[in-house]
């Protein structure tokens, strides 16, 4: 049993990670950090740089949390990657960050969060940026 967190190098992503760490601390479980990219553009801001990833790993090690950091680039959506990780690690909680979207933006782009909420087989904790969990 484990906790999956969808991580992005943004305020929302950081908030999600913080919330996930708090949850993991409560009852020491495996924390899986998923930071994926579809890999379909030359530059992807949502794909964290190596320094950030090693920073996260260092911190989790220091806190004594069992963890796994994944950066899959397989052409899949972030939502699918998170759901896949949840399936694979039999997650009991998924933590994601939310950000405001205009209705038009939602219509055109769809919403990763919505996709995860609808498809997940376990509780999903959605966190907003700048908000203590």
């Amino acid at each position: 049993m484990s906790i999956i967190v969808g991580y992005l190098p943004t305020p929302e992503g950081t908030a999600a990670l913080e919330a996930a760490i708090t949850e993991a601390r409560k009852n020491a479980k495996l924390l899986v950090v998923v930071n994926s990219s579809r890999g379909d553009a030359l530059v992807d801001k949502r794909y964290a740089v190596n320094e950030e990833i090693s920073g996260i790993e260092e911190r989790l090690t220091k806190e004594g949390i069992d963890h796994l950091v994944q950066q899959p680039v397989r052409g899949n959506d972030a939502a699918n990657e998170v759901l896949q990780a949840a399936e694979q690690h039999r997650a009991e909680l998924i933590v994601i960050g939310l950000r405001r979207r205009t209705p038009v933006g939602k219509l055109i782009m769809g919403s990763t969060a919505q996709h995860i909420l609808l498809e997940a087989h376990c509780p999903v904790l959605a966190v907003k940026a700048g908000q203590e969990p």
């Binding site: 553009a41 530059v43 794909y47 740089v49 680039v73 052409g75």
Partner: peptide, 8 residues
């Protein structure tokens, strides 16, 4: 196609 995203 280059699959790994580069960092700008």
């Amino acid at each position: 196609l280059r699959r790994t995203p580069l960092h700008i």
